[in-house]
């Protein structure tokens, strides 16, 4: 039998699940319900992202995406990746498939990183909650500093990778 990475991960998850079940069945039951909630949150979003990826794939040429995001790993590519990420409004689990799609379509590593980090940390959908919890100054400063420093690690990332 050939073991692909997915099967290995499933095995590890299965073993952890059994260990947890042996240690505390009550907690494991809760974990199982949690997993159900995560699955219900993640799968529909993934479906939408995959449809969107197919849509872009069929209507927009790779050259176009490559030219927008800078095939040659340029600085501006990170900024575009970040801007796209900030408005992406997607679940963390859907961030990586879409970043992979961008990368495959010709975006540079910096753009992929910029997209991932800002989709996680900046997303305009969280701003109202953040402002309400911590105040507008906090929200604005944190988001701006994050945007700026992602640019910094994106540049470092392109050099190192």
């Amino acid at each position: 039998m050939k073991l692909d990475s997915g099967t290995v991960y499933l095995l590890i998850a299965g073993i952890l699940f059994i260990l947890s079940l042996l240690k505390d069945p009550e907690k494991t039951k809760k974990a199982f319900i949690n997993s159900g909630k995560v699955a219900l949150t993640v799968f529909p979003v993934l479906l939408m992202i995959f449809v969107l990826m197919g849509f872009l794939e069929s209507f927009i040429s790779r050259q176009a995406i490559a030219s927008w995001f800078g095939s040659s790993n340029n600085f501006l590519g990170i900024v575009y990746g970040e801007l796209l990420g900030s408005f992406a409004m997607i679940e963390p689990a859907a961030v990586f498939p879409f970043a992979g799609f961008l990368k495959q379509s010709g975006a540079g590593y910096g753009a992929a990183l910029g997209f991932v980090m800002s989709a996680m940390l900046i997303g305009i959908t969280h701003m109202p909650l953040e402002g309400q919890l911590f105040g507008m100054k906090f929200m604005i400063v944190r988001n701006l500093v994050t945007f700026l420093l992602v640019l910094g690690i994106g540049t470092l990332f392109m050099v190192v990778i």
């Binding site: 692909d4 990475s5 997915g6 099967t7 991960y9 499933l10 590890i12 998850a13 299965g14 952890l16 699940f17 947890s20 907690k27 494991t28 809760k30 974990a31 199982f32 319900i33 949690n34 997993s35 159900g36 995560v38 699955a39 993640v42 799968f43 993934l46 479906l47 995959f50 449809v51 990826m53 197919g54 794939e57 689990a93 498939p97």
Partner: peptide, 26 residues
């Protein structure tokens, strides 16, 4: 695209989902 991507990641996502569920209680 939808079919291939799901086929590629379905096992990983199930594993990650189980893992996150466990992580949240432990």
């Amino acid at each position: 695209t939808v079919y291939n991507t799901f086929a590629k990641v379905i096992k990983i996502i199930i594993a990650v989902t189980i893992g996150i569920g466990l992580l949240h209680v432990w």
